[in-house]
Amino acid sequence: MKSGIDRREFLRLAGIGGAVFASGLGFDAVAAERRGGAARKLSDFYFVQLSDTHWGFNNPTINPDAAHVLPKAIDAINHLSRQPDFIMFTGDLTHSTDDAELRRRRMHEFKQQVEALSVKDIKFIPGEHDASLDNGAAFQEIFGATYYYFRHKGVHFFALDNVSDPTAQLGQTQLDWLAGELAELHRSANIVVFAHRPLFDLYPQWDWYTKDGKAVLDLLSPFQHVAVFYGHIHQQHYFETGYIKHFAANSLIFPLPVPGSAPKKVPIPWNAAKPYAGLGFRNVHSRQARHAYELLENTIV
């Protein structure tokens, strides 16, 4: 069975060192965790980030294979020679609908699809298409909390929700929670943040920002090793704000134009000569010996 991943590209990238981009996060091989806690040895691991699958999207001129891209990506991940420690979907799991029943059906269908993943540690955050029309109600019923903390092999992960409020903000309750969690950490802690929308003002003219994103970045700015992985803009993008590195991911449904490069923010139509161009998922490897993360961008074929 064809895996659905462009193995040649994967191997070619591996052949040049395996890195599309080495972020230089500066992870320490040994790092203290919570304040007052003992130092803990960190070890290598990797996770997979998928974003903007828009399950339920139906426009053949934009993507005539919409119902099959997610299954192909799942199959590709299942064929990776080494399986990731966990998988993160950074929002817009489903395409928005006014019909609350259809919204839930799409979410259940999506969940059923991802149950085919061999890796069972699967995490989700909502995008505005999932959560903005009902303040995250259906998402919470089917996937659980919209924002949360977890720790993995010494790295502190914060999954944030900047979409359940349709005005695109986290809100004071979530900011207070984040501040409380961060107050427990050493300044040298290794922190990874997941969000759907960019936390910095990427291109506000296209609504590519978070209204209270600056408050989040202010809370994170004292920490030296922070990476943010997000979606929403349907393309890879890299930006730094102080010590904080921001990485946007490709979509699995359609690409969008480079910010400001087109008069309007509309999907890039399907190109029959280059099907699936701009679609994909990424492997995020932590490389402790090199004190860096590596991103491997996988395309769909």
């Binding site: 298409h129 903005s132 029309l133 005005t167 609504d207 923010k265």
Partner: peptide, 12 residues
């Protein structure tokens, strides 16, 4: 632009 998400089509 509209900056309050209002459904599929809001982006445009």
């Amino acid at each position: 632009m509209c900056d309050v998400f209002c459904g599929s089509g809001h982006e445009e």
